[in-house]
Amino acid sequence: MTSSTARDHAAPSQPDRQEVADRLLRSSEILSYDPVREVDWETPLDTAYHGASPEWSTLFGTAYWDEMTPEQQRELTRQEAASVASTGIWFEMILQQMVLRDFYAKDPTDPAFQWALTEIADECRHSIMFARGAKKLRAPAYRPRRLVVELGRVFKTVASGEAAYAAILVAEEVLDVMQRDWMRDERVVPFVRTVNNIHVVEESRHMKFAREETKARLEGAGWLRRQINAVVVAGASYFIVTSMVSREVYENAGLEPERAVREAKRNEHHKSMLRSSCSGLMEFLGSAGLLTRASLWFYKRANLI
C-alpha cells in the first residue's frame, strides 16, 4: 500500500477516510502478530517440505519439472519462495518511503495519519520476517535487475494518487492469492506457512485502504488523467510481477538456467495461475477506469489478463 501528496490530487472525503482508518486501527489492535514470537525460527529446515505449493512453481507442468527428482522440485520451490520474499522486501521498502512522504508534517491526531504509521510498522516487521525466512530457506539475497531497481527508485519518488495506490494494490493482490494457497498447503514447510498466514492477515487491511484510496482519488478524474495513470499502474505492475522470481533461482536449485528460463517463459500453467489470481483485481481496475487499451498491453505481457 502507498499514498500520495495532497497537492497532486484532492484528498478523499474526510469523514469516509477517518471511518476507514478508525476501523483498520481497531482491527490492527485486535489481530496483529509478532513474527519473532509467532514463527518457529529455531527448528532446522526440513528439506522434506516444499517452500511453496508446487503448482505455483514457474516450472510446474513443464517437461523439465517432470524430469526433476522430488528433491530438486522441493529445492526449486524453496528458492522460488525466497525470491518472492526478497522481491517483497524491495517492494515494501518502496511503499514505506511513499507513505512517509505522504504523511510528512500532517495532523498526527488524524486516524489516517495513525493508520499510516501502523502500516509502516507492519511493513517493517514483514520485511524482517521475509529476510529471516529467505535465510532459513538457505537462499541468497535475490534482487530485481538493476534496471528495475532504478525504475523503482524513480517510481517511489514521483508516483502519487491513484497511480501509487493502484500499482501497490496489484502487487499485494497477486501475492495474497499465492500465499493463501501456500499457507493451507501441508506440503509447504511449516514456518513458511506461518509467515504466509501473518502476511495475508495483516496485508488484507493494507489492501482495503489501498482500494478505498484509489477510488477516492479518482473521483472527478478526467479522461486524460485516467489514461495516463492506467499506463503508469500497468507498467509498474509489469516490472513488479515479472521480478518476483529471479532467474538465479534455477542455478541455485541445481538446474540448467538457460533451459529453465526458456521453459518457464512458455509455461502456460503458470500463466493461467497468475491470470486466475488477478481476476478480482482486474474487475476492480476496470470499474475504476484504469483498464485501457494501452494498459492491457502491459497486463498481457505480465500474464495478468
Rank of each mutant, 00 (worst) to 15 (best):
V200E: 00
N229S: 15
L218N: 12
V177G: 04
L218E: 13
E212W: 03
F209P: 00
R211P: 04
A230H: 01
V231Q: 06
W182D: 13
M178C: 02
H199G: 00
Q227A: 15
L224H: 08
M183D: 03
E202R: 01
R187G: 14
V170Q: 05
A221G: 12
K215Q: 14
V188T: 04
S204W: 00
Q227R: 14
N196C: 14
D181N: 13
V189Q: 10
V177K: 12
M183K: 14
E173G: 00
H206I: 01
H199D: 01
W223N: 11
P190G: 06
F209S: 09
M178D: 09
T194E: 13
N229K: 10
H206Y: 02
K215Y: 15
F191V: 06
W182P: 01
V170Y: 08
P190S: 07
L224R: 11
N196L: 03
K215E: 15
E213N: 15
L175V: 13
A230M: 09
E219Q: 12
T194V: 06
V188S: 12
L175F: 08
L169R: 15
L218V: 05
R225M: 06
V188I: 12
L175K: 06
T214P: 08
E173K: 14
G220I: 09
F209E: 04
V189R: 03
P190I: 12
D181W: 07
V189K: 03
R211Y: 11
E212D: 14
D176I: 04
E203D: 05
N196F: 02
N197F: 15
A230R: 02
W223R: 15
R193Q: 10
H206L: 01
R225Y: 06
E186N: 13
E203Y: 02
V174D: 09
V170P: 04
A210R: 13
A230F: 00
M207L: 10
E202Q: 05
V195E: 09
E172I: 05
N229V: 11
F191G: 02
A171C: 02
D181P: 01
K215A: 15
V189G: 01
R217E: 07
I228M: 14
R205I: 01
E186D: 13
V189N: 03
W223V: 09
A171H: 04
R226P: 07
L218P: 11
H206W: 02
M178T: 11
A230L: 01
E203W: 01
T194W: 03
V195N: 06
W223Q: 10
V232Y: 07
I228E: 05
E202F: 02
M183G: 06
E172Q: 12
R217K: 09
I228W: 11
H206E: 01
E172D: 14
W182M: 12
R205E: 03
Q227D: 14
G220N: 11
G220D: 08
I198M: 13
K208P: 00
